[in-house]
Amino acid sequence: MFVRSERLFLRPGWPEDQDEFLALIDDESVVRNLTRAPWPYTGEDARRFLDAAPDMLLPRFLITQPGAHGTRIIGCIGLSLLDGEANLGYWIARDHWGQGFASEAARAVLSLARALGHKRIVGSHFVDNPASGRVLEKVGFRPTGRVLERYSEGRAASCLSREYAVEFDSPSDCGDDCDNSGLGSAPAMAPKRAA
Score class of each variant (00 low, 15 high):
residue 83 D to R: 14
residue 51 D to T: 11
residue 7 R to I: 03
residue 44 E to M: 02
residue 29 S to F: 03
residue 68 A to T: 09
residue 170 S to N: 14
residue 178 C to V: 04
residue 27 D to G: 05
residue 77 I to D: 05
residue 20 E to R: 14
residue 59 P to A: 11
residue 70 G to P: 02
residue 176 D to W: 10
residue 172 S to H: 09
residue 46 A to Y: 02
residue 50 L to M: 09
residue 58 L to K: 04
residue 14 W to K: 15
residue 38 P to E: 08
residue 40 P to V: 03
residue 34 L to H: 00
residue 190 A to C: 12
residue 116 L to M: 10
residue 8 L to P: 08
residue 60 R to Y: 09
residue 61 F to Q: 00
residue 153 E to S: 13
residue 178 C to F: 00
residue 161 S to M: 11
residue 80 S to M: 11
residue 96 H to Q: 15
residue 108 A to T: 06
residue 24 L to E: 07
residue 90 Y to H: 02
residue 183 L to D: 02
residue 54 P to K: 01
residue 67 G to S: 08
residue 102 A to R: 00
residue 138 K to E: 00
residue 106 A to I: 05
residue 111 S to L: 02
residue 115 A to M: 13
residue 67 G to R: 04
residue 177 D to M: 10
residue 5 S to G: 09
residue 185 S to P: 13
residue 139 V to P: 01
residue 184 G to K: 04
residue 114 R to D: 08
residue 173 D to R: 13
residue 113 A to C: 05
residue 25 I to H: 05
residue 130 P to Q: 07
residue 77 I to P: 03
residue 66 P to C: 08
residue 69 H to Q: 13
residue 77 I to R: 02
residue 125 H to P: 00
residue 140 G to T: 03
residue 98 G to T: 08
residue 18 Q to C: 14
residue 77 I to Q: 02
residue 192 K to F: 07
residue 59 P to F: 10
residue 16 E to A: 13
residue 88 L to V: 03
residue 131 A to K: 13
residue 186 A to D: 11
residue 116 L to A: 07
residue 78 G to C: 02
residue 181 S to F: 07
residue 21 F to Y: 15
residue 134 R to Y: 01
residue 152 S to C: 06
residue 30 V to S: 05
residue 49 F to T: 13
residue 62 L to E: 05
residue 162 R to H: 11
residue 158 S to R: 14
residue 31 V to R: 06
residue 170 S to C: 11
residue 100 G to Y: 01
residue 172 S to Q: 12
residue 171 P to I: 03
residue 119 K to F: 09
residue 45 D to A: 04
residue 165 A to F: 10
residue 127 V to L: 15
residue 166 V to A: 03
residue 117 G to S: 08
residue 164 Y to L: 08
residue 33 N to C: 12
residue 195 A to W: 14
residue 79 L to D: 04
residue 17 D to L: 07
residue 75 G to D: 06
residue 139 V to T: 01
residue 104 E to A: 01
residue 123 G to A: 15
residue 176 D to Q: 13
residue 148 L to D: 10
residue 176 D to P: 13
residue 156 A to P: 01
residue 60 R to Q: 13
residue 168 F to W: 04
residue 148 L to V: 15
residue 86 A to T: 10
residue 61 F to I: 05
residue 72 R to W: 06
residue 121 I to Y: 03
residue 193 R to K: 12
residue 132 S to H: 00
residue 84 G to Q: 11
residue 171 P to W: 00
residue 69 H to F: 10
residue 159 C to L: 15
residue 24 L to R: 09
residue 121 I to V: 15
residue 138 K to A: 11
residue 166 V to P: 01
residue 107 R to L: 02
residue 174 C to T: 12
residue 25 I to N: 03
residue 4 R to C: 06
residue 166 V to D: 04
residue 82 L to W: 13
residue 91 W to L: 02
residue 155 R to F: 06
residue 73 I to D: 06
residue 52 A to F: 09
residue 113 A to W: 00
residue 150 R to P: 00
